[in-house]
Design a binder for these strands. Structure first.
Lengths: 188, 188
DNA sequence: CGACATATTGAGATCCATCAACCAATGTGG
DNA sequence: CCACATTGGTTGATGGATCTCAATATGTCG
């Protein structure tokens, strides 16, 4: 599935110059400070953010507790998927965890660009497919693994998460309480 | 989000005749008996199945136990998403729960049709988006609800599931043991 | 230094899985 | 058409994983 990212990048490289320039021309660089919110709950996610540097996360509130649903690193595309797709108010927040630099593209501008450069529709399709498979994999992991297994899985596959993100956030990303995560780590 | 299905149907209706006929011409009707497998684990999912009548499910084996991941009713599109998208061996089985009639389209034939009728790419995009949002919603429910809440949620939103599917399958779909589901029902 | 976020540890409660026994309905071979 | 197996569901007892509440470090940053 990681190889699908390669496929997407290959597709981007294979685009004609016209489309490539069109794609670049609709994006603009922006920076956020640590702790700043790129998207608030109940706002419509009208922009997509390609992370150039730094880290960010997506989360929602449940019983006043923050549940992290996705962590964003370099080259990840940060959006609240359903809010972006339906252009409806978002359940989720997007927050800069460090100072970040992002490439911002407006939803409507991208929609217009797809009409002008139809090859971008295929790109959009690939991105949606990738996200669907990513969520499917995450659901699968919640179904089949215990909290300890999920932690070890991240430790193996995504050590950068453990190294850079606070345990409080990792715990909610893993779907366990901070205390449980602490105990899991103590046992290893 | 249900309204997104309406949007997809509207899009299909808005297609020019050429594209519509192209879309229809690549599908063929097939029937399966109750219990038959449309897709087995480790096979590549090379076809999509639009359910015309009857019910089906998608499941995988975990520790020898069947975990149901999706239930298919009339007008649902049954595929193993990652296997279909990547054309790689599937984790999942697809099984007819009743006698079913389906409209079958081959992956490669649809890919070719997208080249010939580019509007089908947008249709494919909408279907992928819909699936991504569906999985996201399911993950969200697993995160925020107890087993009892998930059961009540299905009872409200999808009573046809409770009425037509066996408790054993519903339990695995809800991510609880059959015994727990039985107790949940007894308490209501 | 003080204040506030971050992490660890302990104890009790809760949810749910597992194992096991049992029951009811259905189907099948002789 | 009966005897028995099979499938689907219920119920009880027990244990394990994880949550919650609470107390106690351990930073870390103005």
């Amino acid at each position: 599935m990681t190889s699908y990212i390669d496929k997407i990048n290959l597709y981007i490289k294979s685009l004609d110059n016209d489309t490539l320039i069109g794609l670049q021309s609709i994006a603009s660089i922006k920076t956020y400070k640590k702790g700043e919110l790129l998207l608030r709950q109940n706002e419509v996610c009208t922009k997509s953010y390609l992370i150039i540097s730094g880290t960010a996360r997506k989360y929602y509130l449940n019983d006043g507790k923050e549940i992290t649903t996705e962590l964003f690193f370099e080259n990840d595309l940060a959006v609240s998927f359903d809010s972006y797709t339906l252009q409806q108010p978002s359940r989720e927040f997007i927050e800069a965890l460090t100072a970040i630099s992002v490439s911002v593209t407006k939803y409507q501008t991208f929609e217009d660009a797809k009409k002008k450069y139809p090859k971008l529709i295929t790109l959009d399709l690939m991105l949606a497919e990738y996200y669907a498979m990513w969520v499917e994999k995450r659901l699968f992991e919640f179904h089949t693994m215990t909290a300890t297994q999920r932690y070890l899985h991240i430790l193996n596959k995504s050590p950068h998460i453990i190294q850079t993100i606070s345990l409080t956030i990792i715990a909610s990303y893993l779907g366990v309480s901070l205390e449980t995560l602490s105990r899991i780590r103590a046992k290893i």
